[in-house]
Structures are given as C-alpha cells and as structure tokens.
Design a binder for these strands. Structure first.
Lengths: 199, 199
DNA sequence: GTCTATAGACGGATAGAC
DNA sequence: GTCTATCCGTCTATAGAC
C-alpha cells in the first residue's frame, strides 16, 4: 500500500518549518535543541528526523521557502506601470517585517550562520542577488522611461536599495524603541534623493 | 597580592580578548568552547576563569574595548577644520575593516547575540549611539558653517551614515568577492548626494 | 602565612542523531 | 529512549611574591 501522501508530507514539513522558525528566532540556531524543535512542532524526535536529516536542514529549509516569495514580490512590482512605484512597493514589502521582531531576528541569525556555512551563504546570497537584480531592473526601466534620473548606475542602485533596507532591519533589531514610521519616511527620502524620480 | 601589577593584568586580559576575538569570529559564540579560548590564548582553563567569570564575559569584553576606540576616532575627526572631511575620515575608518573578514564576522555575531541578550544589546547600542551622535554633531557643524546642505536633519543624517556603513559591512560578509574599492566609492557618492557639501 | 596566577582534572548536565 | 560526545565552570593543587 502507498502510505505516502505528498501533499500531507509537504504540509507537515511546512508546519515543522513554521514552528522551527519561531525557535530559531528566539534562541538562535546553536541554542535551539532538536528537542525544542520537537516540542514546538508537537512531534517526536523520530518524526523530526524523518522529515529532515539534520538540525541544519531544518534551518536551511526555512530560507529555501523565501526564494519563491521574493520572486512573487518582484513579479508583482514589475507589473506596475510606474517603475518608481514598483521600487517603493518592493521596499515597503521588505520593510513590512519591521513590526515582526521574530522575522528580524531570524534574518540576523541567518547572517551570522552564513558567515561560517558557505553553502548556506550561497542560498542567502542567491536570494539577495535576485532581489538586487530585480530592483536594478526596475530602476533601469525607470531610467529608460525618463521616470528616474539616479545618481548611481542601475546596478549600484539595486545593490544599495537592498543594503539600505538591511541596515534598517538590523538597527530595528538592536533598538526596540525605534520610530519605525519615521525611519521608513527617512528611507523614502533617501531613495528619492538617490533615484531622483521625475515628473 | 599587594603587588598586583595592574598593567600586567590588563595586558594579559587584552591578550586573551585578542585571541578570543579570532575564535568567536571564526566559529561564533556558541560553537566556540572555553577550551578553544584557552588553546588560542595559550593558557589553561584555570587561568581563563581567573580573568573572566564566564565565557560570555570574554565576548562582551571584546566590545567594551571598542567604546574607547570609537571615542578616539570621533575626537580626532572633530579636530579637523572641515566637518565634511571629518565625516569622510570617520566613514573611511569604519569601512577600513572591510578587508579584515574576521572583524566583519565578529560584527555579525554581535548582532545575532544582541538579539537575545538585552544587556549586551545595550552595550552595542550605546557604541552605535555615540557614533551616530558624533556624526550628527559633525554634520550639524557643517551646516552651521555653510559647508553642508544635507537633505536630512543632522540627527537623521548621523543615523543613516552609520546605517550605510553597516549595510556595506553586512553585504561584505555575505559576498566574499565584493569589490570593496568600488563600493566605497559608491558609498561616498551616496554621502555626497545626501549631505551636499558646498564650496 | 596570605595573595595572585597558573594548571589541569573533574562533574553534572545536555547535546545531536538515530 | 539510547548512546556517545562535548561543554561550562568548579575545584584542587602548585609556584612564587610579599
């Protein structure tokens, strides 16, 4: 008999990843034990290692899921008529997690882990690269349409938009009382100064 | 002993911190064992715990030492006649560690640790605050002298200069092959666009 | 004999993987 | 639940300066 239901398998996997994300965000990768993961997901240790070969695989799995989300976001932005609006939409979405401390911490943890896990770093960098390329494309379109007159090349602009968002995230994680609304406004001002929307 | 030699004690402490910084940068806080620290510093566990009560205290000690360094840097910059040059000097110094992968990784690790160690976060944030305030002061002086015409308030400018540098650091940690020279040039261009040096 | 500095063994606890 | 490995920090012991 076929005891394998792929949909159910994927759903369980996702449920484990969701529970694990909370653990990793709260305690970090190293200090999260596999027992913690089992408890959070409400499963046995046998079950955990059925779905993932190692603790690391659980952590990596969380960020593999991000790739698709980012592509969606960029595709949606690319469909907007105004590239400047597209840039703003992407930035807004990227900074929307500022109100979710767990996500910010998870990003921090990913950065630290990537520093000593080259394979994982490649995954993270791949995600970032897509984001940078997508934003660079939006800027380039804006330039061609005469909508943007950036002081940087499109490629540099894409890179630094992502960098600015990252900087805001990391500061938010350190400064609990940060005025998110204000900083987002300043970020927008900086973007305007660099990208120079026209018309 | 009456004859405690404070200089010798401080020197040994510093030597341990230096050795530890390498370990923490390479392996992270959690994965660095106290035995690793002892090996790196060439001392015994008894000695290590004579100078520091816990492993965490060693880690924290590394960043406590930074406070003084930053203050020095800001003081030196404040003495320059031209505030814009002062800003550039500070930024140059802050980004000089880009070629030292160890330092970059240590910064990453600090961010991750701060996310779950409020007391340590306060130390890091304190260091950052001084930096932000110092830069804001430089910008403010530039404005009063008619040397700068920034598109942001001085306080916001100080905040975002630090953010820009942080952004560059975090990107460098992920992307080994980053063209540091180019990115520093772009950073300078961005600073010029935001701060608008006049004359 | 008191104090600092050093060394290194050891214990109780906990981890990951199965 | 098992099994092996590892870890942090304590504890005891030794050496020398006063």
């Amino acid at each position: 008999m076929r005891t394998v239901d792929p949909a159910k398998h994927a759903a369980k996997r996702r449920a484990i990843l969701d529970a694990a994300a909370g653990c990793f965000a709260r305690d970090g990768f190293e200090k999260t034990s596999t027992a913690d993961l089992c408890r959070a997901a409400g499963i046995s240790s046998g079950s955990l290692f059925h779905y993932f070969p190692t603790k690391r695989a659980v952590f990596v799995g969380i960020f593999e899921a991000d790739t698709a989300d980012n592509d969606e976001l960029l595709a949606a932005a690319a469909e907007l008529a105004d590239p400047w609006e597209g840039v703003l939409a992407v930035v807004e979405q990227m900074t929307s997690v500022l109100s979710l401390p767990g996500v910010v911490r998870l990003v921090l943890e990913a950065g630290a882990q990537a520093a000593r896990d080259p394979e994982f770093a490649e995954l993270i960098r791949g995600n970032d690269d897509r984001m940078r390329a997508g934003l660079a494309g939006l800027v380039e379109r804006g330039v061609r349409a005469g909508r943007l007159a950036p002081v940087l090349s499109s490629a540099d602009a894409g890179n630094w938009i992502v960098a600015l968002v990252d900087a805001l995230l990391s500061r938010a994680s350190l400064d609990e009382g940060l005025d998110v609304r204000h900083e987002r406004a300043v970020l927008r001002k900086v973007l305007e100064t660099i990208l120079v929307p026209v018309g």
